[in-house]
């Protein structure tokens, strides 16, 4: 492998890693803080990509960003409402919303399952044009993704230390305690899911504009990939202030992309991405459990072999 190809692998991994790290930060909020595994993530990611692409197609690449975030918020609000006010289990609520979003997304994309932005102005093409001739000309993707991630990480670092942020963290930790602090856990769950899903949709919106296309499958498997990234990130940064843990989630997303890119170099077919992410999630979640079970298993095996 020559230096140039290593450089291009790194750049692509960084770009895609940073863009998808926004979804990882969404799960950092909903899964790690709120304790809700939000399975509407895939659909919400596509919703963000589809909405962003349609608005960009209409000639408003900047408006695409708040528009995508707003529809993400709505999706998160519905997922939250189902699980807090309508008695639907949180996993099921996510799956139901995810299924419903499939139709919504096709409708958003004008009854099509693919939108092409090749000839459309996107925020990436705009920055590319304005950087033309400078040293940073090829770094336009990196700059935008980095700016978005920085903003979200800084926001989370501050927000999770406010009273509302503390209440959201406590909701996943001990809802009884939230209630005894005179805060309604329904409210904190809703706010948490609304914010998280706005990040997921932002992530989808940026990926759509970056790739110059959005299709109905763009978000498929995102929840598992993001979860894998989140768990990889926890390996790197386990303790420390909340802002640092958010940085850990971003590192996890980038490391995941680098590992994936290297695997592709070694001739792993691209379609294996989702299987790999599944296996990472399985290992990361079952690992600590199995480690705890090991002594008992060893004793059983020793006992059985003595018996014979």
């Amino acid at each position: 492998m020559d230096i140039a190809s290593i450089g291009s692998i790194l750049q692509t991994s960084l770009e895609l890693g940073l863009i998808s790290s926004l979804t990882v930060l969404a799960l950092f909020l909903s899964y790690s803080m709120l304790g809700v595994c939000d399975l509407s993530t895939d659909g919400c990611f596509t919703l963000g990509a589809a909405t962003g692409a349609m608005v960009a197609l209409a000639g408003h690449p900047f408006l695409a960003i708040p528009a995508a975030m707003a529809v993400g918020m709505m999706s998160g609000f519905i997922t939250g409402l189902l699980q807090t006010k309508m008695g639907i289990d949180s996993l099921l609520a996510g799956i139901i919303v995810n299924t419903g979003l499939y139709s919504v997304n096709i409708a958003v994309m004008g009854k099509s399952s693919l939108i092409n932005l090749n000839k459309t102005t996107t925020i990436f093409s705009m920055l590319k044009d304005s950087l033309k001739g400078t040293a940073l000309a090829e770094q336009y993707g990196l700059i935008i993704a980095l700016a978005a991630v920085l903003l979200v990480v800084i926001f989370l670092g501050f927000f999770l230390k406010t009273r509302l942020g503390l209440a959201i963290r406590a909701t996943g930790n001990n809802p009884d305690m939230v209630r005894s602090s005179s805060i309604n856990p329904v409210f904190t769950t809703l706010v948490g899911l609304v914010i998280a899903n706005s990040f997921t949709a932002l992530s989808g919106c940026l990926l759509g504009q970056f790739q110059k296309s959005a299709n109905i499958d763009i978000g498929t498997g995102m929840v598992t990939i993001a979860l894998a990234s989140l768990l990889i990130g926890e390996v790197f940064i386990r303790r420390g202030p909340i802002g640092l843990k958010a940085v850990g989630a971003v590192i996890g997303a980038i490391v995941f992309r680098i590992v994936y890119a290297v695997a592709l170099r070694f001739n792993m077919p691209a379609f294996m991405l989702k299987l790999v992410s599944s296996v990472i999630v399985i290992i990361a979640i079952s690992g600590p459990y199995l480690k705890k079970q090991m002594p008992l298993l060893m004793r059983r095996m020793a006992f059985n072999s003595e018996g014979k």
């Binding site: 501050f158 230390k161 406010t162 009273r163 509302l164 503390l166 209440a167 963290r169 406590a170 996943g172 930790n173 001990n174 009884d176 305690m177 939230v178 005894s180 602090s181 005179s182 805060i183």
Partner: peptide, 28 residues
């Protein structure tokens, strides 16, 4: 004794939630 506090949060964060001062966006 586990029911009254949030184990993953610090002592001052727990106290701050209980104190409830400073509004939603206030911090310690």
């Amino acid at each position: 004794p586990m029911r009254g506090t949030a184990p993953g949060m610090t002592i001052e964060e727990n106290l701050s939630l209980a104190a409830g001062s400073g509004g939603w966006l206030g911090s310690i």
